[in-house]
């Protein structure tokens, strides 16, 4: 534990720190145990094997595409949920957040019944010449499905704490709603949007269950890094451990470099005032 930085009063009871330490251990210990299991002399050949690199590349590509889709659909969803006022809003929120609590396999089954060959939309899509089953598109769909709530939750929180007062002022200054969104709302919640996108990307990287159920597993097409780990585990535990570590490192780098955490309440969206700054109207 580090020396406390700064002189500000933190007010955290010692026992809270103790429990927090146990909580951190719960996460770190298994990771440390895994690191201890890595076959280091073989590590580089294992993670640079053709199948590993193919899986890593596929994971990065699909996670990027899925994150883009999450932003495309998540931003409007978060706006509607944060700013809208309509019947069924709470229900909509509950459904959008559902993938957070659904077992991934259930998500995979649901996707199967919607977009599979025998599914609700799948048949029409197949007639239109679109085949989703066993394609990389299926992987992206599965990842988007599970990761979308992360973006929506982050962004909706940012939108709510930013409030709508800047937007109201912008409107009275003559800005059309689209202009308000582009020049005021989105710049104000950019940190929240970035955090949400990073979390979504991380979730996409780790997606396994829905992909396995919905997309299948074929090298270079649908076998992402988690599926490769799952398969390697059957045959070569060393490879599975090495790949797991690779996935952990990629996730830590992505999240650690770009995720800043939620903004402290009341900052970030309001101008600092040097004098006489006081309450809201």
């Amino acid at each position: 534990m580090g020396r406390p930085r700064g002189n500000a009063y933190s007010g955290i009871p010692r026992w809270v720190v103790a429990v927090a330490a146990v909580g951190a251990l719960l996460v770190l210990l298994p990771l440390a145990a895994m690191v201890a299991r890595v076959n280091w002399p073989q590590f580089i050949p294992l993670v640079t094997s053709e199948s590993s690199l193919t899986a890593l590349g596929l994971s990065l590509r699909t996670a990027t595409a899925s994150t883009a889709l999450c932003v495309l659909f998540g931003v409007p969803l978060a706006l509607v949920l944060a700013r809208g006022d309509f019947p069924g809003q709470r229900l909509l929120r509950a459904f959008v957040l559902l993938p957070l609590v659904l077992p991934p396999v259930v998500g995979g089954l649901a996707l199967l019944y919607a977009f599979g060959r025998q599914g609700l939309l799948g048949r029409s899509l197949e007639i239109a010449g679109l085949q989703i089953a066993f394609s990389t598109t299926a992987v992206v769909l599965a990842q988007t499905f599970v990761a979308l709530p992360f973006l929506v939750v982050s962004l909706e929180g940012a939108l709510r704490s930013a409030g709508s007062r800047y937007e109201a002022v912008a409107a009275t200054l003559g800005a059309r709603p689209t202009t308000v969104l582009r020049r005021v709302t989105l710049p104000l919640v950019l940190p929240g949007l970035a955090s949400g996108a990073v979390l979504s990307f991380a979730r996409c990287l780790g997606e396994f269950g829905a992909t396995l159920t919905f997309a299948g597993s074929l090298q270079g097409v649908t076998r992402t890094l988690p599926l490769e780990i799952y398969l390697q585990r059957e045959a070569d535990a060393d490879a599975a451990v090495a790949l797991s570590l690779l996935l952990v490192v990629v996730a830590v780098v992505v999240v650690g470099l770009s995720y800043r955490g939620p903004a402290p309440a009341g900052t970030g969206s309001r101008p600092a005032r040097s004098a006489g700054g006081q309450g809201t109207a």
Binding site: L173, G174, A175, R183, V184
Partner: peptide, 27 residues
């Protein structure tokens, strides 16, 4: 609101924090 020509000056200046003073006024 944006077609009304009724600019609002509130108690809180509510300057857009991500824009410079000039860009705020040019908004």
């Amino acid at each position: 609101p944006h077609r009304r020509g009724t600019a609002l000056l509130a108690q809180d200046p509510l300057l857009f924090p991500h824009l410079s003073v000039l860009e705020n006024v040019a908004f």
